[in-house]
């Protein structure tokens, strides 16, 4: 049985379509990544799945319960971390844990054990009496995750759990997510960070309310292998972009970090033409080499393809 099933979900706000006919399924124990730029509709989809928003049309089920008709059952069997940090700042770590233990109705005999587990998992045992306000971003996020799993829910919805957290803390957070997945928990996680996409078993890319790509990280990269990718480091990236416009064999040029990623159909022939064109314009090429496409390249390419289709 799939933990999450979405069939043709639509959610509109007035005339604005935030989620546009989305369908997907997430298997039990899977870490399912939900990617997309701002306003793509990730949070809206997650809220529908948590029973916080009623879908305009379509059907969705979580743990076999229908989101529109059985929200009570869903709430008992999910953990949710909303995008905005949502623990009580003026309560201590322990008071927050006790509060969620109470409203999730964790049975009396399990309470002490769950609390110990969460404190250890979040590495907060020593700071259990600290006011939550005084914790740094990474600790707060781990505490929020801990509070969302006190009742040991089979499915977890995490909405950008690592935004604004330093890279080291992000790594620690993803280690926790992997542990949870290994113990059979299904994790539905949205993120802005492309490097985090690599940690997911499967991914969906959302763009303007639609899912425009769905698959494992390897599958998505393979979809791009009809073309090759060159990393170009030149003295002036902007002039370079202009210079390469319309050059035969160059399919796409995208800014990437301080340099450029150039999508080409034939590596050797096009590389030669690129060097020639740039030399003619007096632009110095510091580095030009073929690279493996990263997740970000994949998504940039997919979104550009989508935009070309719309235009």
């Amino acid at each position: 049985m799939n933990s999450v099933e979405i069939q043709d979900i639509v959610k509109t706000f007035g005339s604005f379509v935030a989620v546009d006919h989305v369908s997907l399924a997430v298997a039990k124990g899977e870490i399912f990544g939900f990617l997309g730029p701002n306003g793509a509709g990730k949070s809206t989809t997650i809220r529908v799945l948590c029973g916080l928003l009623t879908p305009t049309s379509g059907r969705a089920s979580v743990n076999g319960f229908d989101v529109a008709r059985q929200p009570e059952e869903i709430r008992r069997t999910i953990g949710y971390m909303s995008q905005k940090f949502s623990l009580y700042d003026d309560l201590t770590v322990e008071e927050n844990i006790d509060f969620f233990t109470g409203i999730y109705g964790v049975p009396r005999e399990k309470r002490a054990e769950r609390k110990r587990y969460v404190l250890e998992m979040a590495n907060l045992t020593e700071r259990r009496n600290a006011l939550t306000r005084t914790l740094s971003g990474g600790w707060k996020q781990r505490l929020a995750l801990g509070c969302a799993i006190l009742h040991d829910p089979p499915v977890l919805f995490l909405d950008e759990p690592t935004s604004g957290v330093d890279p080291l803390a992000r790594g620690a957070f993803w280690a926790l997510i992997h542990d949870l997945s290994e113990t059979g928990h299904t994790i539905f996680v949205s993120t802005h960070y492309m490097d985090e996409a690599e940690y997911c078993h499967r991914l969906a890319l959302m763009y303007r309310g639609k899912v425009i790509a769905l698959g494992t990280p390897a599958e998505l990269k393979a979809g791009l292998t009809a073309h090759s990718l060159l990393n170009l480091d030149s003295s002036d990236p902007l002039d370079t972009m202009r210079a390469l416009e319309g050059l035969a064999g160059v399919l796409d040029v995208a800014v990437f970090g301080g340099g450029l990623h150039v999508t080409v159909d034939d590596v050797d022939a096009t590389s030669a033409r690129v060097r020639q064109r740039l030399a003619a314009q007096g632009i110095k090429v510091r580095k030009l080499e073929q690279i493996e496409p990263s997740m970000e390249d994949v998504f940039v390419a997919l979104i550009e393809a989508e935009e070309r289709k719309a235009a």
Partner: peptide, 13 residues
Amino acid sequence: EMGTMEQILSTPL
């Protein structure tokens, strides 16, 4: 305003 309502609404409360 704090966003804690959204969290609470996702629980059996």
